[in-house]
Amino acid sequence: MSPSQAPDPMRRRVLACAGAGAAATLLAAFPQARAATVDAQPPSVELDPDGVYASATLVFALPVTLEDALHRGIPLYFLTRMSVSQSRWWWFNASMGEGQQLTRLGFEPLLGKYRVSTGGLRTSYHTLDDALNQVQHVAHLKVADAKDLKPGQTYQLGGRFELDLSQLPRPFQLNVASQSDWQLQADFPQVSFTWTTAPSTAPPA
């Protein structure tokens, strides 16, 4: 690379500052609101022949600031992590497995529709309430393999739900990290279950 082609450190700093400044200006236009309260319901446990699955429900209203950001073209990402552990009185709990689900909520202004994407599944909705209804439900998320569990043993299922700020554009990450109305998160109440090998649903050979 010739000297004329070499990146200019000063130019990079100016562009970074400009990006952060633009993000701060846009954030200043958002209505300010208090952090939302997220009610995380106790998760349900499903025992299948191949392992443990979890389903969970959350109840919350999207803060005005986040709703306004969504309508300005900034997609929101919600991360749900669930894990299975076993208590050990002599040491830390043993991790038996975990699973996670990342859900994207976006708005398409030209169509006036909200789009929710989870994995390869994409669904469109006409109202924000209908879109949030999908975001607030986690269904059949695998959290542990059968081979890692022992019949008759008791395990604990717990987890956490949060707005994943790391998915936001970099300038926004720097500006919203300390703002309470962007701290949308909650821990699921921990539930206990006993592993029993579920009967196979496969037809006989």
Score class of each variant (00 low, 15 high):
residue 2 S to Q: 14
residue 2 S to M: 09
residue 2 S to Y: 12
residue 3 P to S: 15
residue 10 M to C: 02
residue 13 R to L: 13
residue 14 V to G: 00
residue 17 C to Y: 12
residue 18 A to P: 00
residue 18 A to N: 09
residue 19 G to A: 09
residue 19 G to V: 02
residue 21 G to Y: 10
residue 23 A to H: 06
residue 23 A to P: 10
residue 24 A to C: 07
residue 27 L to I: 15
residue 28 A to E: 15
residue 29 A to V: 02
residue 32 Q to H: 13
residue 36 A to H: 08
residue 37 T to V: 15
residue 39 D to A: 14
residue 41 Q to M: 13
residue 44 S to R: 11
residue 46 E to V: 00
residue 54 A to Y: 05
residue 58 L to C: 13
residue 61 A to N: 13
residue 63 P to E: 14
residue 66 L to D: 12
residue 75 P to F: 14
residue 77 Y to E: 01
residue 91 W to T: 11
residue 96 M to D: 04
residue 103 T to R: 06
residue 111 L to P: 04
residue 112 G to I: 10
residue 113 K to Y: 10
residue 114 Y to A: 04
residue 117 S to W: 02
residue 119 G to S: 07
residue 120 G to I: 13
residue 125 Y to K: 03
residue 127 T to E: 08
residue 132 L to W: 07
residue 135 V to G: 05
residue 138 V to Q: 08
residue 138 V to D: 04
residue 139 A to R: 15
residue 146 A to L: 00
residue 147 K to Q: 11
residue 151 P to Y: 05
residue 152 G to C: 05
residue 155 Y to Q: 04
residue 164 D to Q: 07
residue 164 D to V: 04
residue 171 P to Q: 12
residue 171 P to C: 11
residue 173 Q to P: 10
residue 178 S to P: 02
residue 184 L to F: 14
residue 185 Q to C: 08
residue 187 D to K: 03
residue 188 F to S: 05
residue 193 F to N: 02
residue 198 A to G: 02
residue 198 A to H: 01
residue 199 P to Y: 04
residue 202 A to P: 00
residue 203 P to R: 01
